[in-house]
Deep mutational scan, measured.
Amino acid sequence: DRYEFNINGVHFTIDDAEEELIKLIEELLKRGARAEEIEEVIRRWER
Rank of each mutant, 00 (worst) to 15 (best):
D1M: 14
D1H: 14
D1Y: 07
D1E: 13
D1W: 04
R2P: 10
R2F: 07
R2W: 07
R2V: 10
R2L: 06
Y3K: 03
Y3P: 02
Y3I: 03
E4N: 03
E4L: 02
E4M: 03
E4Q: 05
E4A: 03
E4G: 02
E4W: 03
F5K: 01
F5Q: 01
F5E: 01
N6G: 04
N6V: 15
N6P: 01
N6S: 14
N6K: 06
N6C: 07
N6Y: 12
I7D: 01
I7A: 08
I7M: 05
I7F: 04
I7K: 01
N8I: 02
N8V: 03
N8G: 13
N8T: 04
G9E: 05
G9A: 02
G9P: 00
G9L: 03
V10G: 02
V10Y: 06
V10S: 06
V10K: 09
H11F: 12
H11P: 07
H11T: 15
H11R: 08
H11Y: 13
F12C: 03
F12T: 02
F12N: 00
F12S: 00
T13L: 12
T13H: 09
T13D: 04
I14L: 10
I14M: 04
I14Y: 02
I14C: 02
I14N: 01
I14A: 02
D15L: 11
D15A: 08
D15C: 07
D15W: 15
D15M: 13
D16K: 14
D16T: 14
D16F: 13
D16Y: 13
D16I: 12
A17H: 05
A17I: 06
A17N: 05
A17G: 06
A17Q: 06
A17P: 14
E18P: 15
E18W: 03
E18S: 14
E18I: 03
E18M: 03
E18V: 07
E18N: 08
E18K: 09
E18R: 03
E19F: 12
E19Q: 11
E19Y: 12
E19L: 10
E20P: 10
E20A: 11
E20F: 06
L21G: 00
L21S: 00
L21H: 02
L21P: 00
I22E: 01
I22S: 02
I22P: 00
I22V: 11
K23V: 12
K23R: 13
K23N: 12
K23S: 11
K23W: 12
K23G: 10
K23C: 04
K23E: 09
L24I: 13
L24P: 00
L24C: 11
L24G: 04
I25T: 01
I25N: 00
I25Q: 00
I25H: 00
I25L: 09
E26M: 14
E26L: 13
E26F: 12
E26G: 10
E26H: 12
E26Y: 13
E27I: 14
E27M: 15
E27G: 13
E27H: 13
E27K: 15
L28N: 05
L28K: 07
L28S: 07
L28D: 01
L28Q: 07
L28R: 07
L28A: 14
L28I: 06
L29S: 04
L29W: 05
L29K: 04
L29Y: 05
L29F: 08
K30E: 09
K30I: 11
K30A: 11
R31V: 10
R31T: 10
G32K: 07
G32E: 08
A33R: 05
A33I: 05
A33F: 06
R34V: 13
R34F: 12
R34C: 10
R34S: 14
A35P: 11
A35Q: 11
A35V: 15
A35C: 08
A35M: 12
E36Q: 10
E36R: 08
E36I: 07
E36D: 11
E36Y: 10
E36S: 09
E36F: 08
E37F: 09
E37H: 07
E37S: 05
I38N: 00
I38C: 03
I38H: 00
E39Q: 11
E39C: 07
E39S: 11
E40N: 06
E40L: 09
E40K: 07
E40V: 07
E40A: 08
E40Q: 09
E40I: 07
V41P: 00
V41C: 10
I42H: 01
I42R: 02
I42G: 00
I42A: 02
I42C: 03
I42Q: 01
I42F: 05
R43P: 00
R43M: 11
R44K: 13
R44V: 11
R44T: 12
R44A: 14
R44Q: 13
R44S: 15
R44W: 14
R44G: 11
W45K: 01
W45Y: 10
W45C: 01
W45F: 09
E46G: 10
E46Y: 15
E46R: 10
E46K: 12
E46H: 12
E46V: 10
R47M: 14
R47L: 15
R47Y: 13
R47K: 11
R47W: 11
